[in-house]
């Protein structure tokens, strides 16, 4: 039996498990991002470089899963959800590592010196992004159970609850960002203007992690609503 038998050709790898693997890696990039920031804040550039490389590796790994998932969803495949929903989901998930890479890249490249007053609030913003991706990972894990349980109400309710939490995190990350911007405005006159422009952009990148999380959550709700 050199070739795959007809009957097993009927079954394709579950897109849910690939989506889950992708999200696990995505979550790991955000976890690494907080380690990276901790190192960068105290000026330990060697450790920061290591974390930064790790984020790059994870981003590649996520790309691999993204490609596998896209390959596993050719036309003519039959799924319990819309194919386009899954493609859109993995596209959104994949933007999170990009943000982590952008942020860490600029920090390394410019050896950013964070004003003392900003250290704690930025760490907090990263932690919120991490909390958001962790919830999203939980949602993606639940998707498999939801589908196994025949889209039972109980599973739907659990996913809805998690998505609500993600929305709350996004709200609070948003007000954090406003607070950080206010702090930065107070510092502006004393710092290098170019550094400040970059810093605004970097804070925007970090806040975007929670935004994307919320977007993924809403997309999942659309996908599973009947």
């Amino acid at each position: 039996m050199a070739k795959e038998p007809l009957f097993s050709k009927l079954f394709r790898e579950s897109p849910f498990s690939l989506l889950k693997k992708h999200m696990e890696v995505v979550n790991q990039t955000v976890v690494t991002l907080s380690d990276f920031f901790a190192a960068a804040l105290v000026g330990d550039w060697q450790a920061a470089e290591t974390h930064r490389n790790h984020i790059g590796d994870l981003e590649h790994e996520a790309d691999d899963y993204k490609r596998q998932l896209r390959m596993s969803l050719p036309r003519g495949i039959f799924l319990p959800v819309h194919r386009t929903d899954l493609l859109e989901l993995v596209h959104l998930q994949d933007q999170i590592p990009n943000k982590a890479k952008d942020f860490s890249g600029v920090v390394i490249g410019r050896q950013t010196q964070f004003p003392d007053a900003l250290g704690a609030p930025i760490a907090e913003l990263i932690a919120k992004g991490q909390a958001s991706t962790q919830r999203i990972l939980d949602v993606i894990v639940e998707l498999e159970d939801l589908f196994r349980s025949g889209f039972s109400d109980k599973e739907q309710v659990m996913i809805e609850r998690l998505v609500l939490e993600v929305s709350d995190i996004e709200d609070s990350a948003d007000s954090d960002r406003v607070k950080i911007h206010d702090l930065m405005r107070g510092h502006e006159s004393r710092e290098n203007p170019l550094d400040m422009i970059f810093l605004y952009q970097q804070v925007a990148d970090l806040a975007a992690v929670s935004d994307i999380g919320q977007e993924i959550g809403h997309r999942v709700l659309c996908m599973i609503s009947r």
């Binding site: 009957f7 050709k9 079954f11 849910f16 003519g76 495949i77 319990p80 589908f147 025949g150 889209f151």
Partner: peptide, 19 residues
């Protein structure tokens, strides 16, 4: 194969190759 496709239509299989 028919039986599996029937379950698929009832959203019971993750991914089926209709080819």
């Amino acid at each position: 194969v028919g039986g599996v496709l029937g379950v698929g239509l009832a959203h019971g299989v993750a991914a089926l190759n209709l080819r």
